[in-house]
């Protein structure tokens, strides 16, 4: 099921939390929703999950509109809200039973569904504990289990890995990837590495507007103006090397690396490459080039560039 968001606007008082955004998520795609706090990620997801009514615009999930068939959307969506709210006084298994019944799963199949979810989400040892007694990682799994129990076509996950330890993050990520193959998934996060690792496509929003949309490679390309190299040159006077490097006409800027006396960071002029020039220079002068590493523009930098004004 595709998700189509058209001209969605949501105001809180005078403030526009989401300002006229449109996008489409295709079946089988995992979309990463990135943005600083308060950018409108959660609001958008709540609107897709039919919890919030937008001021303007429409959302379709499959053929259903949030205005006309909210119940059909609710049946086809698995939603994990921010902070993963759960009934703390209920045992895991009772809670899953409750959710399964609400989702309209036939009585005879509830048991089988619950067992399946307990296996998929690794809750075997905790199924009789009260949710309030679980650690954060297991709570998160219960949150995922309740979102997945009716085998929804669409998954909306709001910060599914927040507050987890690194091992748990990897596990949940794998789980999402595994489940996400046949489903349409939107997940939000402000951890960039996570989005890069899990998602096929990234959508960055800031102040309620979409500022970037594409794969992580696309985004990199967009902001890649110039090549950055880290080089290490030995057997020479560092000031002399510095001057010689700056003399090369492809090079825009040279910087000492702080810790290492023999290492430099070179920024090439836009559209050019200076790897050959640097090599030839060293050969000519008899210096020894021990390292040359192209530095990739990090997603963090792109993110900062797009969201800081």
């Amino acid at each position: 099921m595709d998700i189509v968001v058209e001209n969605l606007t949501k105001k809180y008082g005078a403030q526009r939390a989401v300002d006229n955004i449109s996008f489409r998520v295709k079946t089988g795609e995992i979309l990463g929703f990135l943005g600083p706090n308060g950018a409108g990620k959660t609001t958008t997801m709540k609107a897709i999950a039919t919890y919030l009514t937008p001021n303007e615009g429409d959302i379709h999930v499959g053929n259903f509109s949030i205005y006309e068939n909210p119940d059909e959307i609710k049946k086809n969506i698995g939603y994990l809200p921010e902070n993963n709210p759960l009934y703390n006084d209920m045992p895991v298994i009772d809670y899953l039973k409750f959710v399964a019944a609400l989702q309209g799963i036939e009585k005879g199949r509830i048991r089988e569904k619950i067992l399946h979810m307990i296996n998929t989400c690794g809750l075997e040892g905790e199924k009789h504990k009260k949710i309030g007694e679980l650690s954060k990682g297991y709570r998160q799994r219960v949150g995922l289990a309740q979102a997945l129990i009716h085998d929804p076509q669409v998954l909306i996950l709001d910060e599914p890995t927040s507050g987890l330890d690194p091992n748990q993050i990897v596990e949940i990520r794998e789980l999402i990837k595994k489940i996400g193959r046949e489903k349409t998934v939107i997940l939000s996060s402000h951890i960039l590495a996570e989005v890069e690792a899990t998602c096929d496509r990234i959508l960055i929003i800031n102040k309620g507007k979409i500022v970037a949309d594409g794969t992580s490679r696309d985004l990199r390309k967009q902001s890649e103006g110039h090549e950055i190299l880290r080089v290490k040159i030995e057997e020479g006077d560092k000031n002399e090397i510095f001057k010689a490097l700056q003399g090369l006409n492809t090079i825009g800027m040279v910087d000492f690396m702080k810790k290492d006396e023999t290492a430099f960071e070179i920024q090439t002029k836009p559209g050019l490459s200076s790897r050959r020039e640097v090599f030839n220079l060293c050969v000519g002068k008899g210096w020894i080039l021990t390292e040359m590493t192209p530095i990739e523009t990090k997603l963090e930098d792109i993110f900062r560039e797009l969201t800081m004004n």
Binding site: K46, Y51, K74, Y79, P81, L86, L102, Q103
Partner: peptide, 14 residues
């Protein structure tokens, strides 16, 4: 307070 209302109302119930 705990936010579970959001979860409840996004299930197929009115």
């Amino acid at each position: 307070r705990s936010g579970t209302l959001e979860l409840l109302l996004t299930k197929p119930v009115s």
